[in-house]
Design a protein around this nucleic acid. Structure first.
Length: 388
DNA sequence: TCTGGGGTCCTAGGACCC
DNA sequence: TCTGGGGTCCTAGGACCC
């Protein structure tokens, strides 16, 4: 018999923008957009509620966002700082329960004793405001699904409970998109069948749902009824590490520029692999063409790897064999197929392999200390000097 | 003023093995 | 030597989430 718990979903409001307003008080009360380069192809990552009033949304192209809200203040974002603040918020969560699941930098589920949910939610809301000066929304219910929906209803900067008894009145009138896992495509299909609200789904014949959701249809139906028996998952094993970049303008140069970018991405992926004590067996190259068509090509090796050199050579080989026609809009490198690093390998390594490993250790420690800008290859240095 | 970056999970087909 | 079926691994694409 499962223990009955109250579940909270805590979600920091407009997190990156709120941290910017906290660190730069002159931004308070103003439309702030954290995002990419407005001159290039950047999009808005997070926007303050003042900016949302103008229709600005996450993932909106920066150019369009600035059209809607020309007076917006654009900030490039500082992930290290956001990570630091997220840690402070988690410390507050930890005062109330050890039973928590981190969903993302700004979101976490907490489980507390049945009956305590609303009180804990109100305490967290107050403490995060008093101690850190940040707005947070908290949803409370008996399961993850309804806690998440409650949190959406609470936003911004508030606490809301949504219990099973409230489902017909508060959950059923919402659009189908309120159910996690129903995105734009599924919503479109449902609309074509005349299914618009959560209530429509809850009352829909199983065969109809099966046509759209396949094996997942039973779960979707249960969600629509407010039922959800998923437990909190305190630990998430990382499955992949990737870096990708969209160029400010499409790139034609397959000889020099693209390989140089692939080298940078490979070095970033390699650094993060080693920092996490992981080795991978699979590399995936991602390419996006100017018409937005996107392909991925991958290669799995019998042996584990985590060196920049191996990642670069694999990715470059995949590029040379699959590059298609220029120009390219995006390139990305992903490592997956992880296993824990075994220590044995040092014993059987050749001199050359040992030397490369030692070099990487030095390089990684420099990068950790001074950031990636100081760690450059000889070729990059030459290119840089040429530009000057 | 077209469409970021970092992830997860699912599906489906082919290779290969027994 | 026309053929069955299950299991696993790999690859590619796509939907979805924050």
């Amino acid at each position: 018999m499962k223990k009955e718990l109250d579940i909270l979903l805590c979600d920091l409001d407009a997190f990156y923008a709120s941290v910017e307003q906290l660190d730069h008080p002159e931004l308070k009360g103003k439309p702030v957009i954290v995002g990419g380069d407005p001159a290039g192809r950047g999009v808005a990552s997070t926007c303050s509620y003042e900016a949302r009033k103008f229709g600005v949304r996450s993932a909106m192209p920066m150019k369009k966002a600035l059209e809607l809200c020309p007076q917006a203040i654009v900030v490039r974002g500082n992930m290290a700082r956001y990570g630091e603040v997220a840690g402070q918020v988690r410390e507050i969560f930890g005062r109330y329960t050890p039973d928590l699941e981190i969903v993302s930098i700004d979101e976490a589920y907490l489980a507390v004793k049945q009956g305590l949910g609303l009180t804990v939610a109100e305490n967290i809301h107050r403490k995060v405001r008093e101690e850190l000066g940040l707005p947070i929304s908290v949803g409370v219910s008996s399961n993850k699904l309804l806690a998440k929906v409650a949190c959406e209803l609470a936003k911004p900067d508030a606490v809301k409970a949504l219990w099973m008894k409230d489902v017909p009145e508060l959950f059923w009138p919402l659009p189908v998109r309120a159910i996690p896992g129903i995105g734009p495509k599924a919503a479109e299909k449902l609309k074509s069948l005349g299914l618009k609200t959560v209530k429509d789904l809850a009352h829909c014949p199983p065969a109809t749902l099966r046509r759209i959701f396949g094996n997942n249809s039973a779960n979707i139906h249960r969600f629509a009824c407010g039922l959800d028996d998923r437990e909190l998952e305190p630990v998430h094993d990382l499955k992949s590490i990737s870096e990708e970049t969209t160029f400010p303008e499409d790139i034609h140069d397959r000889q020099d520029y693209l390989p140089a970018v692939i080298r940078e991405l490979a070095a970033g992926v390699g650094y993060r692999l080693r920092s996490s004590g992981l080795k991978a067996r699979t590399i995936t190259l991602k390419l996006r063409y100017s018409d937005f068509k996107t392909i991925t090509r991958s290669k799995t090796l019998p042996d584990l790897f985590n060196s920049d050199k191996v990642i670069y050579e694999l990715a470059l080989d995949l590029f040379n064999k699959n590059s298609g026609r220029a120009p390219w809009r995006l390139v990305g490198v992903k490592a997956s197929g992880f296993e824990e690093e075994e220590q044995l390998s040092l014993l059987i390594a050749t001199d050359e392999e040992r030397k490369e490993k030692q070099l990487l250790v030095v390089k990684d420690s420099l990068q950790q200390k001074y950031g990636s800008a100081v760690v450059v290859s000889g070729k990059q240095l030459k290119d840089f000097n040429k530009q000057k």
